[in-house]
Amino acid sequence: MPKARLATVSLAGCFGCHMSLLDLDEALFELAELVEVDRSPLTDIRTMNDCDIGFIEGGCANEDNVHVARLFRKKCRLVCAVGACAVTGGIPALRNNIPLAELLATSYLQDVVDPGIPNDPELPMLLDKVYPIHEVIRVDHTLPGCPPSAQAIALFVKQLLAHEPVSLPYKELHYD
């Protein structure tokens, strides 16, 4: 059986979901039998081929995140939102009910040495709020958890490859 191509990316997340994937330890070898990793922070490959599965960790906080999410949608047959931030916006979304100007002023101008909001044109502009992935692109599957456990990720991948409905045992389904 040819290996499925898997791309992964971390947007407005903490890389915790990627860490969790690495927690598979020796089971990673088993996973490597099933998938070929394409663009991913794990491979450090920056270009992207057409893939079977795309894992997105984190929500969309800035312009660049939106472009990457759209690229994943274009290149991947199945796009999966992985982890609490991708699914709901998560911790970064705590900013969402605060207007941007107020938010940046509080972070960069008040009670700090050398106040000034970073404004390099190279920096991607922030969105008005942090969007969960399903509000930016259509998502095929979601895996909640902060992070989802290594076992949950492995099971999730296996179910996707077997075209089975995603279903997690009680102990593996959690939102924190």
Partner: peptide, 24 residues
């Protein structure tokens, strides 16, 4: 599907801040 999130609308606040000149 690309019309999903209105990127320009979502960027309005940031663009205004940037044009206001450096956020200083």
């Amino acid at each position: 599907p690309d019309a999903f999130v209105q990127l320009e609308t979502a960027l309005e606040q940031a663009r205004a801040l940037r044009q206001a000149g450096g956020h200083t």
